[in-house]
Design a protein around this nucleic acid. Sequence first.
RNA 1: GGGGGCGUGGUGUAGUUGGCCUAACACGCGGCCCUGUCAAGGCCGAGAUCGCGGGUUCGAAACCCGUCGCUCCCGCCA
Length: 589
Amino acid sequence: MYKSKTCGELTAQDAGKTVTLAGWVHRRRDHGGLIFIDLRDRFGVTQIVFNPQTAPAAHRVGSDARNEYVLQATGVVAKRPAGQENPALATGEIEVYVTDAQILNAAKAPPFVINKNEDVDDSLRLTYRYLDLRRERMQQNLILRHKVIKFMRDWLDAHGFIEIETPILTKSTPEGARDYLVPSRVHPGEFYALPQSPQQFKQLLMVAGYERYFQIARCMRDEDLRADRQPEFTQLDLEMAFVEQEDVLNLVEALFTDLVHTLAPERTMQTPWPRMTYDQALARYGSDKPDLRFGMELTDVSDLAASSEFAVFKNALRAGGQVKGVRLPGCAEYSRRELDALVDLAKTKAAKGAVTIALKADGVHSSASKHMTPQEQQAYVERLGGQSGDLMIFVADSHAVVAAALGALRKEMGARLKLADPNALALGWVIDFPMFEWNAEEKRWDAAHHPFTSPKPEDMALLDTDPGAVRANSYDMVCNGYELASGSIRIHNRELQAKIFSLLNIDAERQRLRFGHMLEAFEFGAPPHGGMAPGIDRFVAILRNEDNIREVMAFPKNQWAQDLMMHAPSDVDADQLKLLHLEIAPPKP
RNA sequence: GGGGGCGUGGUGUAGUUGGCCUAACACGCGGCCCUGUCAAGGCCGAGAUCGCGGGUUCGAAACCCGUCGCUCCCGCCA
């Protein structure tokens, strides 16, 4: 070993001991005579002192050292002189008087500052990720990530779960996200797919009788990136047999509640977690992943609109839609330009427009004042509980568009007005998702969750008459405006599974080709089962108050799915392509 | 595929109603001085044709057009 102690463990108790430390030069303070170096390793920082009188050879080493040099130093632990302690440092009671030192490796000046948490251009950080990872922020993020995963493993183990690995090379299932494909050398023209999730494997493990499975599972989806979406990400994938929805929810809630209490006790969390149906979430917050850290709920004003002469409102109602509004406290003085920006935000969610009513000191000011009397405007204000100085914004459209538009406004304004308590973890459940979503482009029903989700027994009759009204035994875990997990009770009956496939426009032949193994497995004594899959990257990011899941991944991709450090993706040798029976088509002009 | 933001020494920023910019500040880097610092301090120094290309102008870091890169968002994400 190059070291007898780490840079994070020495205390006054160790005074007098001779120790050897090894690490990186975090900072160096050269007084001409004495040189102080803050030596850093993964465990902490320790001040080592070079004295030209008592150890001239070692002092020359300290003199040559520069930031990020790799250093080994042997010396005697000493309590610092009275008044020289550094309370900001865990090892601040002591220092090490170096008697012998050597440079294990020199270092160029790094392309960005490592010993300060200063913002640096993301692409530079990603190019030199191994340097970025030395910085305290990333180190803390990855250490917490480790603790979270360790906690999950231990907790699930203690609750009778076993961890089972499932294949990375598997079969493409074109429904859902785009697959990453891997060409087969042995089978010309055929491909493996990287898993979007271990969904089918974990269900088959239930058929196999393992009853309680989990996996820290890597999932890959070839879709465009966002701050909370990387092409590969990690889920705590779990599945249980002989359970109902309530059992899964209770178990996951207990796991995460214990986890937060243990690893983030300073964070506030409402227990038990609030639950709401999908319909309630959309009605109250305009989102199926509402940020529950603040109120600012949507208010239905359809009844007021019904008795008004305002054509935009009336027409929306006549078409079966609704009119709802949201109150933005203290925003009455927004400029025309700012109001337009809010309306534009609503329009990005397919709203045709939005009506604003500002309650200023001299009364109501509305963008629809030509179409509404002041009395009408006042009625809307009162319905929303508007106070002087508030801005109200209304959207009239279908239920879905109203929710999307006002939900986007609520999210944006919640952030802008800093309504969310940054210390809160607003964990909650959204249940009773619809079974199907109408895909207007393809003119067919798509599975809202995935095709293995079971419908609610009481809605079974609607499968034949009104698929859009069927609710699923599916549920999401939400936190601070993120979808942290999705899950469902699965289908375990062959006939029902085949019926759902058919409803999803997958004919018998494609069912046999793509899902024959699942249908067949259900004929061999498949138990009732269900589970879910919390996203670990998103959860750790929330715990660390990071806005981008890159910050909690060691080697993430940039927005265009490139690894700037490894330079992936990259072209490959012609020989490799030949072996894989591939030819590259010339790019389109 | 679309929209917004950003791009100035190694890093982070200032400068952007065109002229005082022969581009400023902090950190970093190099040298010298300095025995109790911990964001050490002091002195000196090197380092940027302002992402790239074109244009307008007597004059462009700044204005216009194009382009590239990064980033956030929409679409997309069973």
